[in-house]
């Protein structure tokens, strides 16, 4: 009797799941979509999601519920996503280089880079090197010369987390200049700001929105982008100052592995319309985010291209899990 009851419950539950997923594919979306944010509220990922929320609802024709799953530098959220039902009703924000570097460095991060089904890549925030307004140097060259005159390792550069675009940016700068700047990781972009304001680190490697948020507190020495951003015309690129360094954080959304392509397409289309919406566009510019419009195929290609690139850099830095 007991066995029968257990078997009955199990089969009922299984049937329900199958039914739910079959019904789901027919006309997606039929209910609320949960959009998980893997980082602290108030960070770039959260802010972008909040900018998209209303417009996304409009184009998806369903409610979108933003929820936080924080821990392990995003890994908790992504590992959980790979175990979620692939019905398209749960998606998560995802970031490069995080989702490439975590599995690369740790071996087992709870997920694999390509487990995450790419939906849409909507923004990039290039790295920016900044110092305090009262610092004795005004250009990248002056800063680097100053660093050269000091003992190796004594110049500190703060940034957000380890194995992030900030971390890589400093490592790449060290490699390009032969300097030994010490990278000091903080628990987020915001957490690093007081450290520079208080003069506890010499500079910050952070992301482009800072150029607008802190324009009267900091000086911006260089941006690691191909060309100047149109919202920050006074911030020069590293390239034009003689260093061919391009690095930044990409943000997009991903779905659980095995999500049907038809569903991914519906989601990607909704994101595409959202990002092209003039109101969203205006806000993205206003806050210093550079908008991208990469569908599922393009995003996947980007992930693969970046993986190959990072593999070389990380090997050189001796940071790949053996």
């Amino acid at each position: 009797m007991k066995k029968f009851a257990v078997a009955l419950t199990v089969s009922l539950v299984a049937c329900a799941f199958v039914l739910a997923s079959v019904a789901g594919a027919a006309e997606f979306p039929r209910k609320r979509v949960t959009y998980n944010i893997c980082f602290n509220p108030g960070g770039e990922s959260d802010i972008t999601a909040r900018l998209q929320e209303q417009t996304l609802k409009k184009y998806l024709g369903q409610d979108v519920s933003i929820q936080y799953k924080i821990g392990g530098g995003g890994a908790v959220c992504w590992a959980e996503l790979t175990k979620t039902a692939p019905d398209g009703y749960t998606i998560a924000g995802h970031n490069l280089p995080h989702t490439i570097l975590q599995p690369m460095e740790m071996g087992d991060a709870g997920y694999k880079t390509l487990d995450l089904k790419q939906v849409y890549m909507f923004e990039i925030t290039p790295n920016v090197l900044m110092v305090r307004k009262d610092a004795p140097y005004n250009t990248l060259k002056e800063f680097l010369d100053y660093a050269k005159s000091k003992p190796a390792g004594s110049i500190t550069v703060g940034g957000s987390a380890t194995s992030s675009a900030n971390d890589l940016g400093v490592a790449m700068l060290n490699r390009a200049t032969g300097l030994k700047l010490t990278y000091v990781p903080f628990t987020g972009t915001g957490a690093a700001v007081p450290a520079l304001l208080g003069g506890h680190v010499s500079a910050l490697m952070s992301y482009s929105p800072m150029c607008i948020q802190y324009k009267d507190k900091f000086k911006f020495l260089g941006m690691m982008s191909e060309k100047r951003m149109k919202v920050t015309p006074d911030v020069p690129t590293f390239k034009e100052q003689g260093y061919d360094l391009v690095e930044g954080a990409y943000r997009g959304v991903a779905a659980p592995p095995g999500t049907p392509d038809a569903i991914v397409k519906v989601l990607a289309d909704a994101f595409d319309k959202t990002m092209r919406d003039p109101e969203v566009q205006k806000r993205m510019d206003q806050y210093g985010f550079e908008t991208l419009y990469m569908g599922p195929a393009e995003s996947l290609a980007l992930v693969k291209k970046k993986t190959a690139e990072y593999e070389v850099i990380m090997k050189e830095l001796n940071r790949v899990k053996k």
Binding site: G71, A75, V76, A79, T162, S163, T187
Partner: peptide, 23 residues
């Protein structure tokens, strides 16, 4: 769970669930 800065897995005793850390 995972070290918040470096992502290194600590004291998880081989349980993948513990990677998420204890809230």
């Amino acid at each position: 769970g995972q070290d918040p800065l470096t992502g290194a897995a600590r004291l998880t005793f081989g349980f993948p669930q513990l990677l998420a850390g204890v809230d």
